[in-house]
Design a protein around this nucleic acid. Structure first.
Lengths: 230, 230
DNA sequence: CGCCACATTGAAGGCAGTCAAAGGTGGTGG
DNA sequence: CCACCACCTTTGACTGCCTTCAATGTGGCG
């Protein structure tokens, strides 16, 4: 199995020797899921955590009325449900495959033994948890403090910064997820997101063609992200 | 200095021997703050983290318009800004003393050295971060998915569960913070909180006398917490 | 007694969620 | 190549919760 090779790319296992990686891999189980398939549901007993090997996974919460709030969208190499290993015994959210997915599953006990053997692993885990904590911090800020237009602007602003810069030309990139998913990620619904895009178009801030976003006025976008009214 | 004794109560240092605790204490600096004094502000360079020795501290974010969203209210023994040590170099929120406060300050480098020496410390840190992650998880859920009345109900429900049960009699407890602070913690404003309390009174769910809360209908409260309409 | 912080109440307005329906868009199979 | 279908997106109308602004109430404390 080439799981060890796949795990090598995961930040969680960086700095480990090949032999150690073999050991890590020997604990893990490979699992695959179809698009739409649930990996776990909120409240399920948590006996281990996951590293995403390929595909995309979304972690989300559901409101009593069924509205979905996406917590994270995961890319290969990222781990999820780590906290379940060390605190609490239930998964605190839903995890669903957004595409065909392969994961490595680590049972808690095995992983705890591993951590005891390899302090680097503990350290990597701390770093990963800290980074996650920061993300949640930012998410809380966005959800509670900003209006939808500011959240959208912030998201696009970040995406623009991450996107491969096209020197001279306007900043352009594609949305990585559907607009409905993006709306959920931003704590709103697709209708409102659609209207927000429309208003931004009217203001000459950007252009939207399907998934393709063109930023025309980065400063204006930045202003919105900082809380200016649309 | 009896800092070692104070630190012994902190979950972060549980399981450490007295000698180790001395070592931990030798790294830390004791600092005190008056009520209202800032311990750090969002964006300040982060060179270490804190353990609260006495008093109460609030961590919060500010919106562009100045509205405050409380992330956590800390009690003695809890640590804060841990994530700053391992990820990022700026504090991601404001920390303000809500009363006269004493903290132990741990510079990052010293603490990192300590962790390398004492794997238990790393493990404790992982546990602490995981627990924190769960709290944030819950906070995100509350902010994005629930109406104010549900958030209030949830808060009271939890508080009722934590409060010393008075067998036979109705559940009764005092709010730990001002209603304005509670409103902030719940992502709303004091006016809305006041109206919500009033409506709950009308429904015979509880009684409010200043800070004293009396739960009259725990099931009703639970229903609201689950999303039922007020 | 009067101040100050906190709390309550009323009125008004806006942002955004819901419902409903029409308009794309891409993929599949005939 | 085209027709069909499922899914996503957009648009409109409406409703409602919550924030804002403003004024009044209340309790503790010097």
């Amino acid at each position: 199995m080439d799981m060890a090779a796949a795990l090598k790319r995961c930040p969680l296992f960086s700095g480990l020797q090949t032999g150690d990686l073999q050991m890590v891999a020997s604990i893990a189980t490979r699992r695959t899921y179809d698009r739409r398939e649930m990996i776990f549901s909120e409240g399920d007993p948590a006996k281990g955590f996951f590293v995403l090997l390929s595909g995309k996974v979304k972690l989300y919460k559901l409101s009593p009325e069924g509205r979905e709030q996406i917590l994270r969208v995961l890319s290969p190499g990222e781990q999820f449900a780590e906290a379940a290993v060390f605190s609490g015994d239930r998964y605190p959210a839903f995890a669903e495959a957004m595409s065909p997915v392969a994961v490595a599953y680590f049972p808690s006990e095995g992983f705890l033994r591993l951590i005891a053997l390899r302090p680097e692993l503990a350290f990597n885990m701390i770093v990963a948890l800290s980074a996650l904590l920061r993300k949640f911090n930012a998410l809380v800020e966005e959800l509670s403090l900003k209006e939808v237009s500011a959240r959208v602007a912030r998201y696009l602003f970040d995406a623009a910064r991450r996107s491969p810069q096209n020197p001279g030309g306007p900043v352009q990139f594609d949305l990585e997820v559907s607009k409905a998913q993006l709306a959920s990620r931003l704590g709103t619904v697709s209708e409102t997101l659609s209207r927000t895009f429309h208003k931004m178009k009217d203001r000459g801030i950007l252009d939207v063609q399907g998934k393709r976003i063109t930023i025309l006025d980065l400063d204006g976008l930045g202003g919105l992200a900082e809380g200016l009214r649309l």
